[in-house]
């Protein structure tokens, strides 16, 4: 090992290899990468079909590179600094009516990207997603305005989800009750604690009976009591003939609420099956 004696050596660029970022997703396939043909169960009603899905992002790795910043970059034809992230690599599966599917995998494995593609918010590079009705993401936070009262935000969030005004005034009381915000509902949302606004957001978003619902880590809001109630609400939606995708790192809530699970790692579907089996395999691998 070379001993670095001078501090100048540490920062002398000629003594060190140029930094090459490691690929975010290495291309060595973790499992057999030939896309498995969609297994079709003829007896049940399919709701979502994901067919050999690939999603890629092109991102500037770090704002501006040191050398070719500004006007110089406009003139350069090279695509230095652009990195392609292959976030989903050929995932296929079929989701049936009345299923609740847990999606597990480590951070950055492509779970959220897969969910966003299923809702149609991200366009796939190749492959496609078919659905019986448009899947909805359980999230309404972005439509709300912190300077307005909780009450006005219920109206705004409801309209953003596609209700009309009568429906919203009908479910207003339920939302307020579910969020436990009776005394604070006329205060601006910026005065709420993070738990309070998370509760309000969940209450607005979950007020509707969705056919296909995607819950991305939203169950982790609020205190233990609210978490219990929101899980119960999710189950209720499922029992009313909905199909649910639940993205979570909490294996217990996956086993409690889901009957099937998908394990995704580095953009590849590793395992698809009964929730308990998949969670056990995932836990065994992670140890």
């Amino acid at each position: 090992m070379v001993e670095l004696t001078s501090f100048d050596d540490l920062i002398n660029p000629r003594l060190h290899a140029k930094f090459e970022p490691a690929p975010v997703f290495d291309d060595s396939p973790m499992v057999a990468s030939e896309s498995p043909k969609v297994a079709i169960d003829g007896d049940r009603v399919p709701v979502v079909i994901v067919d050999d899905l690939h999603v890629k992002y092109q991102v500037y790795s770090s704002g501006k590179s040191l050398g070719g910043a500004g006007a110089k970059r406009l003139l350069q034809a090279s695509t230095r600094g652009i990195r392609e992230v292959h976030a989903i690599k050929g995932i296929s599966f079929v989701a049936y009516e009345n299923e609740s599917i847990g999606v597990i995998g480590s951070n950055g494995s492509g779970k959220s990207t897969l969910m966003r593609t299923i809702t149609g918010l991200t366009t796939p590079a190749s492959g496609s997603v078919y659905a019986s009705s448009r899947p909805n993401m359980l999230g309404v936070g972005a439509a709300l305005i912190a300077d307005l009262s909780g009450d006005k935000n219920i109206v705004l969030g409801g309209l953003a989800l596609g209700y009309n005004r009568q429906e919203i005034s009908a479910m207003r009381e339920d939302i307020i009750k579910f969020a436990e915000l009776e005394e604070f509902i006329d205060l601006p949302m910026r005065t709420y604690s993070s738990g309070m606004s998370a509760r309000l957001k969940f209450a607005i978003a979950a007020s509707k009976q969705h056919d296909i619902l995607i819950v991305d880590e939203a169950l982790a809001v609020g205190d233990a009591r609210f978490r219990k109630r929101s899980e119960a609400r999710i189950r209720e939606i499922r029992e009313n003939a909905g199909t649910i995708f639940l993205v979570s790192h909490s294996m217990n809530s996956i086993i409690d609420t889901c009957n099937r699970a998908l394990w995704i790692e580095k953009g590849v579907l590793i395992m698809d099956g009964d929730a308990k089996t998949v969670v056990n395999a995932y836990k065994a691998k992670k140890k």
Partner: peptide, 18 residues
Amino acid sequence: MTAAEYAEQQGLNRVGAR
């Protein structure tokens, strides 16, 4: 049967299509 044909047969639409 490809996934597209299956989807068509079951009356599913492509998501995100304009």
